[in-house]
């Protein structure tokens, strides 16, 4: 499998306090990497480094040729809690914003048709003219997934997509992701190890350091040995790995 991105000896900190230290990671084509770890452990910071939003203090991030050449190689779904729900913008405009750097390669009509197709797939076409603030959390999440996908990315990055999602859509979301994963690599950040391990292929535990776990089965002992204490949440409807109880 072709390598998409490589992080080598990465160290990053705010105010000289390292949030990430000596992190190494490789992401290959069609990977489905779950990123878990405690709050404040550096999960979101790791995403920011990959997305180029912050510059590493030490180490480097390299992208594959193919990823580098694309205008928008990475689809990004941020945590919806940071979105201003009162902002006057329509659902369709939010999705279109994902293709902002592609207006030279695709016509406006083509981009709009793609946006409508994506919204239709998510069952949102009928509300495409609504303001973003009128949507439920789950609907909003789907709109942002459309925005991440419209640029036809090689790599999709999702930051806690299950935070606001109702149980019904959560199943649909992971089904959708599995389908997408046939073509593109996915990095999924979650605080919910139960959900993660039943969908992802590999796991990275991030708590200042990064421990790569090359399978989706992870036990509590392993999490502890990785110095990666996290809340274990179990869900009824979704198949998941049953883990030992916390003390």
């Amino acid at each position: 499998m072709e390598q998409l991105l490589k992080i080598e000896n990465l160290t990053f900190g705010y105010d000289k306090q390292p949030v990430l230290e000596n992190v190494n990671l490789e992401v290959h084509e069609k990977d489905f990497l779950g990123v878990i770890g405690p709050n404040g452990g550096g999960k979101t910071t790791l995403l920011k480094v990959i997305l180029g939003l912050v510059k590493p203090d030490k180490g480097k991030v390299t992208f594959s040729e193919d990823l580098h050449k694309r205008k928008q190689p990475i689809g990004y779904l941020p945590q919806v809690r940071y979105i201003d729900r009162k902002f006057p913008i329509t659902v369709l405009d939010v999705v279109l914003s994902g293709a902002i750097m592609q207006n030279k390669r695709r016509s406006k009509a083509e981009i709009k048709a793609t946006a409508e197709k994506l919204l239709d797939d998510m069952g949102l076409l009928s509300i495409s003219r609504k303001a973003i603030g009128e949507l439920s959390g789950g609907q909003m999440q789907r709109v942002f997934l459309c925005r991440a996908l419209i640029s036809d990315p090689k790599l999709l990055i999702l930051d806690e997509p299950d935070t606001f999602v109702d149980n019904r859509f959560e199943g649909e979301l992971y089904e959708k992701l599995l389908q997408l994963n046939k073509e593109i690599a996915i990095i999924l950040v979650s605080h919910d190890v139960g959900t993660i391990s039943s969908h992802v292929k590999t796991i990275a535990c991030v708590n200042k350091h990064l421990h790569y776990h090359p399978s989706n089965q992870i036990s509590e002992e392993q999490l502890e040995s990785y110095n990666c204490p996290i809340q274990v949440i179990s869900h009824g409807q979704i198949p998941h790995t049953v883990l030992k109880h916390h003390h």
Binding site: L51, P78, I83, D84, G98, M101
Partner: peptide, 11 residues
């Protein structure tokens, strides 16, 4: 609307 996303898109 979303400054951070705009940055990731290269604006």
């Amino acid at each position: 609307f979303d400054e951070e996303f705009a940055r990731t898109a290269g604006l």
